[in-house]
Amino acid sequence: MEFGSFLGIEDFYYLRKISGAMKNPRTRFNDTMFIEEGEDYLLPYLADNVGPVDETRRKFIKGVVFGIGAIAAASVLDAVRGLQVPLAGENAYVKMLLVDSTGTAVKASSVPVNNPVIVLYEYPLTNEINFLLNLGDTSGNPLALASTSVTIPENGSTYTFPGGVGANKSIVSYSAICQHLGCKPPNIHYYPPQYMKTGLTFPDFLPPDALAAAQKANLPGIIHCDCHGSTYDPYHGAAVITGPTQRPLPSTVLEWDSSTDQLYATGSIGVPVYGHTSTLSGGTTVSGTSSTVSNSSNPFTS
């Protein structure tokens, strides 16, 4: 297929002759006949009115038809982009007051320490649930949680976890969706110090390696996912202790108003919530300026 034989000047001249003959009332091109008979009409028509189509010209015409076809296909297929819908969500974090089911503000001092019950609220989107935890030591006294740097094993980068809030600096909040494959409570939950042992009833057993890893790191409790065994350190920004997860749980930033003892969620740091490209997009926004905290269930049945 030589380019020269494809696009000779005589070809353009020939094309001009064709268009002239087609417009000429005496030799008008019959569209209906062409649609019905295709090449069988076109070729004799050209032979009669313009001169026979030789092999080169025929190839050229075919090439142009294919070219137009390709352009048409590309232009139609461009609409495939219409399949990509813009993600729902919001543009910026809204500061939200944490309230209980009656609508009354949750008091930081009344959040139980080392609570085995799973306590959740949605923020910033309705499909993004978060744990609300008040962490203590083995004897149940609140632990002051300092700001630390958290590493994302997946890419080695780090970010700063701001630490606990409340009078004792012991209240924290994390996304409750496992970063491995998205398991949700009650599959993933907090194991307070009193349940850091083996031999609990299925499914709330702790696999020995998770327990050993927690003891090695000297942690009173852990967040553990029963789906595939990912373990997170709630005392240090939900950093990864055991895989398979490659990402820490995102921290939901809390603000404590010391005058009223009320808690506010103000943002999120770390990786996006599982299943979202950004924590702010991919779901319906929690409406209003408050989010309801609710006791979901107590996974420890024994």
């Binding site: 989107l125 490209t277 997009s281």
Partner: peptide, 16 residues
């Protein structure tokens, strides 16, 4: 992947 996710699962709301 994120494009595929929106094509398959929509904009993130449950109805969609």
């Amino acid at each position: 992947g994120s494009t595929l996710i929106t094509i398959l699962f929509g904009n993130g709301t449950s109805v969609d």
